[in-house]
Design a binder for these strands. Sequence first.
DNA 1: GCAAAAAGTTAACCTCCGTTAGTTCCGCAC
DNA 2: GTGCGGAACTAACGGAGGTTAACTTTTTGC
Lengths: 244, 244
Amino acid sequence: MSNPLVRKLENFVRLSPEEKQALEKIAQPTRRLGAREDVARDGDRLRHVNVVLEGWACRYKQLEDGRRQVISIFLPGDLCDPHVFVLRKTDHSLGTLTSVVLAEISETAIREVALQYPRLAEALWWEMLVTAAIQREWTVSLGQRLATERLGHLFCELFLRLRAVGLTSETSCEFPITQADLGDAMGLSTVHINRTLKELRAAGLIRLRGRQLTIPDFPALQAASLFDPSYLHYERDPSVLDDD
Amino acid sequence: MSNPLVRKLENFVRLSPEEKQALEKIAQPTRRLGAREDVARDGDRLRHVNVVLEGWACRYKQLEDGRRQVISIFLPGDLCDPHVFVLRKTDHSLGTLTSVVLAEISETAIREVALQYPRLAEALWWEMLVTAAIQREWTVSLGQRLATERLGHLFCELFLRLRAVGLTSETSCEFPITQADLGDAMGLSTVHINRTLKELRAAGLIRLRGRQLTIPDFPALQAASLFDPSYLHYERDPSVLDDD
DNA sequence: GCAAAAAGTTAACCTCCGTTAGTTCCGCAC
DNA sequence: GTGCGGAACTAACGGAGGTTAACTTTTTGC
């Protein structure tokens, strides 16, 4: 299967064979990690951009007293550290949720590709801005949505993001993370995550067993979670002719 | 007093007189709004970057049923919409909290300045990345911090951000927003904001009366709120010689 | 294939925060 | 000064979600 970064960016701009090739060349697997390992720690100086090729990772922050917040979830095709170029130290940690394969791209490699292929530069901008939009939507979820809405909203988001890189079937996808991690991401206790999952299952909105999530009726879950996908900005630029 | 955008960026890079002049030239006041007005609405197509010159503004999102989340607070010197260049529609609204003076900068003006002055381009990158870091920290606050910590943390953040543009005295600053807006930003009800303010006042951590906030003992408030300012990335680049 | 560890599940109790419904205070217009 | 409207403040009650402490199921290691 082709490179998930290529598949992801093609949701925004149409890429030529050379552009795809250039991207694939710099996004080759360079590092493999097990589940629950740290890629980088709060305060580290970063040397390259990490791209997830396989598995799930996350940004997180740990408070002095141990409380942990998962700030973002990274799926195959996601760039983890676009800030590497300007800021000297990270202000958060980067860890794996499952076992993960990463591409570590150097600053110069990214700069060169962006200079040579302006459309790739634009696509990378898009990726960065969508990441920011997702972060804003998480702010809304944590601030306003109830537990059921919050979880349902996350399922909708992750399903669409996985679909964008070809990792879903019609109604289901892998869902390999623990309820404890879900809790850290949603600002809820594990116990309450469990209660809420039970409720969503009872309402027939999801099935979740053994790392497999099924959303039998997406519009229903969407309505129950007040999910509006426009923040994902997945519509392809209409000014780019689509001729395959 | 000089331009707040210039003052803000100088917290990161040292700017030459020409660089300052170029920045000031494109960040001139072009629009004045009253309190509680919308600058742009969810779904709008944006044509320029808005920079706050005076007053406080915010990003917010309103759910179908009326619940409102303030996603970011913008102070003088802040850029509101760096995404204008790539994404076609906003996914959130932009509104004023107080009366506001804006500079509306066109895409081309920003591009030209960034091309001509690489150090300004870098400074604008920094500003964008710090904005993202602030967003991540809000995620942590909403997900993990209790009401007192959450409010205290916000006070610490806003005080430092205002100080970076010269809008504080030794221990106090203007604080012109209502408890209702504070609630929408912190994901708390107005009633609970009020209760929590009472508690912070009783603990001697803040004074807040008539749009004026005083933090008599910053380290004390910082400790009580688990506030670590490193995410604001305010240390100036040491590779840039500082010779005034 | 078995033991051990990790993850999922549930119940009882408690607390932080929301809701409702007020009252009080303050700024402003006239 | 008086009257008005918005913001600040308070009390009583209720509910969403946290905590503790189990028990069960699944996964992992050897």
